[in-house]
Design a protein around this nucleic acid. Structure first.
Length: 580
RNA sequence: GUGCCCGUAGCUCAACUGGAUAGAGCAACGGCCUUCUAAGCCGUAGGUUACAGGUUCGAGUCCUGUCGGGCGCGCCA
């Protein structure tokens, strides 16, 4: 639709350039927008106002010239100049209901771009440390990341979803040693789990499981453990316990606790996300970067280019050369690479895999980390513009009007699974998807749980179910609906019918805009608008009791609306039930 | 201290990348079920877009400053 208008105005501008009204070398960008009020027509353009300066004419005068130069076309039935120089365009009724043919022709592909016709994009999201179950904060990242992936895919991009598994580093060691201590407790060793270990019940369960499967072969005397951590501060004591475990159990023994913890938590996360309709193409292991030598390779390359230098026994990346506030350590003085070193190798690997764009969905607390990752890509000779980081603000949970404190370590948090059990996966996804990523979000659990019927998702699903009900009743009454796609649509034309037709027509543009801006929330607002228009239509029009040929056309309009609602719900990962 | 994000109706949030009279839901008030699902519809009320300047035909949107909130600023991940 906009393309056709664009073509018309391009011809008009060319004509005015020939007449030297507009300088021939002036580059014109034509923008159309959907009008907010129907008195302003269907589309409006501000072209005359943007061209006023180069043409040295006042906008309204220029608008008249543009309209005079506009070639004749069936699409537009009326053109008006309004306000300071807007050109308002009124569509012919034929152009309005033509969208129904398109919807029937494309079915569940309606609104979607040509598959795999655009960029190859990776979306990496959630990537929570595998040290415990996902909480509601991760839920927001999951809902946003997956909806973003779906929107990008719907717009015609080739999309892969990836979960970066932080299975290396101290946090995983702390988890493994926490499991070990719980295992010892299950073996009736009277040892305590320090407060900076992982406290969750799942850790105790793993300890008990390991007792069942491996018996008592990894028992170490209480006195030995307490001796190792005597007189040490909390964090040092924990590190000492880790070292002791590695020594006493051997690498293979420690690995049993480590693997058990990692596998069981990853399985849990995978299942949790699967039930949330989030499925990944790849689970990328941080450890694999060590075993494949990719970290060493990346750091060596940076050393060779002089971007990494040695100071005080550690190796530093000179990120200040790339606009960072200070240089960053990549190899500690004890020889261990930092998390940043992993990330340098990881992001280089991502771009090496040939993506046109890699999108990271990160919690907003990581924003300070962006400059150094971009710096590393630049230093490695990669295109840093191919990395896009979208920050998702944390959801602040409220219960009984009070903020709920969250801490993974203490095990006191509301899990994603708990939320899904309470409100359902669909409602949770819709609720999350409504917010744009950078907006702070208050998540009122009482509202989401106890008053779930107030969730707008039900409103949208209800519109879909209602249309399904109409067709079911039609069948019961023996009304033949098989030929509605060929009905005479020209009998449609009431305000409510036109409002629906306009919304249906807008859907493809909407998906493109949502994808271009990384804003899946636009889809939820669109769906609410479409559902509202349908509900109003439903309430005012007794479709099945109308006479032919109106009835057939009305049913066609309903069918097209149902299809579009379903396609839109699918884009945010929410189901479209046929009855409620 | 310094950097990033945010500030819109009583509450939760939109506003098509600078457009015309800033919109929804919830909460409040008043109507609508003998007819396709009332998880619905129709209506009323609610605003100095935190504040002060600036840019231009035009600002919630861009720039500067102030105030308020969140988050960073580790040889943690």
């Amino acid at each position: 639709m906009k393309d056709q208008l664009h073509s018309l105005f391009t011809q008009a501008i060319d004509a005015l350039k020939t007449d030297q009204v507009i300088p021939a070398d002036h580059e014109v960008s034509i923008q159309f927008e959907r009008t907010r009020q129907k008195e302003h027509g269907d589309f409006a353009t501000n072209l005359a106002m943007t061209l006023a300066k180069p043409a040295r004419r006042n906008p309204r005068e220029l608008a008249e010239l543009l309209i005079a130069a506009l070639p004749a076309d069936d699409l537009v039935t009326k053109v008006e100049i309004a306000g300071p120089g807007f050109i308002n365009l009124f569509l012919a009724q034929d152009a309005r209901y033509a969208v129904l043919n398109t919807v029937f022709e494309k079915g569940n592909q309606y609104g979607l771009g040509v598959p795999n016709s655009k960029q190859k994009i990776m979306v990496e999201f959630v990537s929570a440390n595998p040290t415990g179950p996902l909480h509601v904060g991760h839920g927001r990242g999951a809902a946003y990341g997956d909806a973003l992936a779906r929107v990008l895919s719907a717009a015609g991009n080739t999309v892969e979803r990836e979960y970066y598994v932080n299975d290396a580093g101290r946090q995983m060691d702390i988890l493994a040693v926490s499991v070990w201590l719980r295992y010892l407790q299950a073996n009736e060793v009277d040892i305590d789990l320090p407060e900076n270990g992982y406290q969750g019940d799942y850790v105790a369960e793993m300890g008990q499981d390991l007792l069942a499967s491996h018996g008592n072969q990894y028992i170490v005397d209480k006195a030995v453990i307490e001796g190792a951590r005597a007189d040490l501060e909390l964090e040092e004591a924990l590190d000492a316990t880790i070292e002791l475990a590695k020594t006493k159990l051997g690498n293979d023994g420690f690995e049993i606790f480590f693997k058990r913890a990692l596998d069981s938590i990853l399985d849990d996360i995978r299942q949790d996300l699967g039930e949330f309709s989030v499925d990944y193409d790849t689970w990328f292991s941080e450890r694999s970067l060590f075993t494949d030598g990719k970290i060493t390779k990346a750091i060596d390359k940076l050393k060779a280019s002089g971007d990494v230098y040695e100071k005080g026994g550690a190796w530093w990346f000179k990120t200040t050369d790339y606009g960072d506030e200070k240089d960053r350590v990549v190899i500690r003085d004890n020889g261990q690479p930092t998390y940043f070193a992993s990330d340098i190798a990881y992001h280089a690997d991502k771009l090496d895999r040939g993506f046109d764009l890699a999108i990271n969905v990160w919690g907003s607390d990581h924003h300070g980390y962006i400059p150094r990752v971009k710096a590393s890509l630049e230093a490695l000779g990669l295109d840093k513009e191919k990395l896009k980081v979208v920050l998702v603000q944390f959801a602040v949970l409220y219960r009984d009007g009070a903020k709920i404190p969250m801490s993974t370590r203490s095990g006191k948090f509301v899990t994603l699974r708990e939320l899904r059990d309470e409100v359902g996966s669909d409602a949770a996804r819709f609720f999350y998807a409504q917010r744009k990523s950078e907006q702070h979000m208050d998540f009122d659990l009482d509202l989401a749980k106890s008053q779930s019927k107030d969730n707008p998702m039900y409103y949208v699903q209800y519109a879909h179910a209602r249309i399904c009900r109409i067709f079911k009743t039609a069948e019961e009454r023996g009304i033949d609906t098989s030929a509605i796609a060929n009905a005479d649509f020209s009998v449609l034309g009431s305000d409510q019918e036109n409002a629906l037709l306009t919304l249906l027509q807008k859907f493809p543009e909407l998906l493109q805009a949502a994808a271009a801006n990384y804003e899946p929330h636009q889809v939820t607002y669109y769906l609410k608008d479409l559902a509202t228009a349908l509900q109003a239509y439903y309430a005012s029009t007794k479709i099945l009791e109308s006479e032919e040929p109106q009835r057939g056309a009305m049913l066609a309009l309903c069918a097209a609306t149902r299809q579009t609602l379903k396609n839109g719900l699918n884009v945010i990962g929410v189901g479209a039930p046929e009855s409620m």
